[in-house]
Design a binder for these strands. Structure first.
Length: 562
RNA sequence: CGGGAAAUGGCUUAGCUUGGUAAAGCGCUACGUUCGGGACGUAGAGAUCGCAGGUUCGAAUCCUGUUUUCCCGACCA
């Protein structure tokens, strides 16, 4: 590509309303442009990077034996009604009607369609295993698009689906995909961790996420400083602190005016936060519960929901609370209330603790488990930094992550909902075991931009860079320079090396700044020494900066890019 | 969906408190001087100030509504 007279632009100023590093740089460098919240155009260089990422993934998918297909984005809504996900997606689904008033949606995901496709083939146990995948734009009307390409409403996803006879075969297919994913992300140069995750809307038996480690990630990745434990915080098991058992004292009512929060009570009574119990009020499937956690802990609603096998878990309102006690938030506790009480495991280890007295402005001190009844207990809190690793006893720390890939063992959930069965050797009808596997293509692009950028702009790893080399002509009026630069351009092109020629009539500084901003890995500068057949060779990461003879340049670059 | 902020030439912003129909830098056009890390001078083009109402002799500015965008949170494969 030659820049003169081409569709190429950069923007000098920071972009208003594009605060993330990757979003800002990708827009400034002219790779993408925002059209609406969470909706982006891909410009020539941006599209090139996107395609590179897709091709790496495609290559690894093909190597794993999967076959590429393409499903429609426009999908009749009744198949989502049949699987039950029409309602569970709710407002996140873009819904529309055709001219005959038939309901359609823009596909938020494609499990249902792939099941229908698979039915065409699967009749007998001889028809499996296989894995089919696609690159397809997904549409989700996100409540809050953000961070440039990281959370958008239309995005390209590589989604794959495996079909197997039973759980063991399904595990084999699953592991193949994990390998393909590792290879893909390694080739892109992404720093990532594989973490255990919640199965969420997809359902199924197991979910793992590939989390790119960045400063602005949406997810909290839980890691151990000693072992390879890694988990999304939403499912990280917590090893409850064990406290020294004290002799039980008699509980005592104390006046605590204006004490609302745990911090207030810790200050007011001058006690250790670990001696306090926080009481939260939740409405779970319509019923009010008091939830007890140690004062230092944060409740995990997903864990709570799972413990009760509940469909809806929501914070109770003031009105809900009035039905069970006259006390207000800040003075609630488990003693003397006619409400089911759910306690975190850690609370079971506590004694002589402090909690609200269900009388506004009062707390109890020296409360013990014998002072109230616990309906149910379990692990219902978030792990926190400094906690003991549930696997090895090391120390837990957090990183922020962007979910770039996700793998699910779906089991028979979709096969049963959508009647995907096969006949086994003994002529028994059995449900198919599925797996589903997604990679967010543009998220990978954003994650790489986040991980590799510096103060001058983007720094693409070679594998995903829009071009391997840029050639800058210092003085376009100098015929020697122009001729040399063009001959180098032709030579690289002939050797299938992707090259960008900056032949614009701009001052040298402008071109240098632009080449840095768009992050081309290698740059050749054709300047004063062109007449001596000498050019400069520089790498974007700063590791190489030298003068080199044009006779050596091709072999040098071939060596670098293999 | 809760909380916060913002919307003014292509981009980034000033002006708004205390109403008098728009300003700067960058970018763009022309000419000249420059020319190895986002040059400088001169002269230009380019904005019904998000939209709709209202108050007023007069609204970018005050009031009401509305739309859009970003940030924090909730939600989220």
């Amino acid at each position: 590509m030659k820049l003169k007279n081409s569709f190429f632009y950069t923007i000098r100023d920071d972009i208003k309303d594009e605060d993330s590093k990757s979003g800002n740089l990708l827009v400034r460098s002219g790779f993408i442009k925002k059209e609406a919240s969470g909706v982006y155009m891909f410009m020539p260089l941006g599209l090139k990077v996107k395609k590179k990422i897709e091709n790496i993934i495609r290559d690894e998918m093909d190597k794993s034996g999967a076959l590429e297909v393409l499903m429609p984005a426009l999908i009749p809504d009744d198949i989502f009604k049949k699987s039950g996900r029409y309602d569970s997606f709710g407002k996140d689904m873009f819904k529309l009607k055709d001219r005959n008033d038939r309901g359609f949606c823009l596909g938020p995901t494609h499990e249902e369609l792939f099941v229908i496709a698979a039915k065409e083939k699967i009749k007998s146990y001889r028809d499996m295993p296989f894995n089919i995948y696609q690159f397809q734009d997904k549409f989700r009307d996100e409540a809050r698009p953000r961070y440039g390409l990281i959370r958008t409403r239309e995005f390209t996803m590589k989604d794959a689906y495996s079909f197997d006879l039973d759980s063991d075969f399904a595990n084999g297919s699953y592991n193949k995909m994990v390998t393909a994913y590792k290879n893909s992300f390694d080739r892109m140069g992404i720093n990532y961790r594989i973490v255990r995750a919640d199965t969420g809307l997809m359902g199924g038996d197991l979910s793992e996420e590939f989390q790119a480690i960045t400063e602005i990630g949406e997810d909290t990745v839980v890691l151990c400083d000693k072992c390879d434990f890694s988990s999304n915080i939403e499912v990280a098991p917590v090893k409850a602190n064990v406290y020294k058992k004290e002799d039980e004292k008699e509980k005592e009512l104390v006046e605590t005016p204006n004490v609302k929060t745990i911090e207030d009570i810790v200050k007011f009574l001058n006690i250790d936060i670990f001696k306090t119990v926080k009481t939260l009020v939740y409405k779970i499937d319509g019923e009010i519960y008091f939830i007890l956690v140690n004062g230092s802990r944060e409740l995990n609603e997903a864990k709570l929901g799972k413990l009760l096998k509940a469909n809806t878990v929501e914070l109770a309102t003031d009105d809900d609370l009035k039905k069970v006690t006259s006390a207000t938030f800040g003075s609630l506790g488990p003693v003397g209330v006619d409400v089911k009480i759910i306690a975190d495991n850690e609370v079971l280890n506590m004694s002589n603790f402090v909690c609200g007295a269900n009388k506004t402005g009062y707390h109890y001190i020296n409360v013990n488990l014998s002072d109230f009844d616990i309906y149910l207990s379990g692990d219902i809190v978030n792990i926190k930094e400094g906690d003991i690793c549930p696997k090895c006893g090391g120390k837990i720390y957090f990183e922020k992550g962007i979910e770039i890939g996700n793998t699910f063992k779906l089991g028979t959930k979709y096969a049963e909902a959508l009647d995907l069965n096969y006949l086994d050797e003994s002529n028994n009808l059995k449900p198919v075991y599925m797996g589903s596997y997604g990679i967010g293509v543009a998220r990978c692009m954003a994650a790489i931009a986040e991980q590799y950028a510096d103060e001058n702009g983007l720094v693409w790893p070679l594998a995903v860079a829009p071009f391997a080399i840029s050639i800058v002509i210092i003085n376009t009026k100098d015929e020697v320079q122009t001729a040399l630069a063009n001959s180098l351009y032709d030579k690289f092109s002939e050797n299938n090396i992707e090259v960008l020629l900056d032949d614009r009539d701009e001052r040298a500084g402008v071109k240098f700044k632009d080449m840095d901003l768009i992050g081309i890995p290698y740059r050749i500068t054709v300047g004063k020494k062109a007449s001596d057949n000498i050019v400069e060779f520089k790498s974007r990461d700063g590791k190489i900066n030298e003068e080199i003879s044009v006779n050596d340049i091709l072999s040098k670059i071939k060596n670098l890019i293999q």
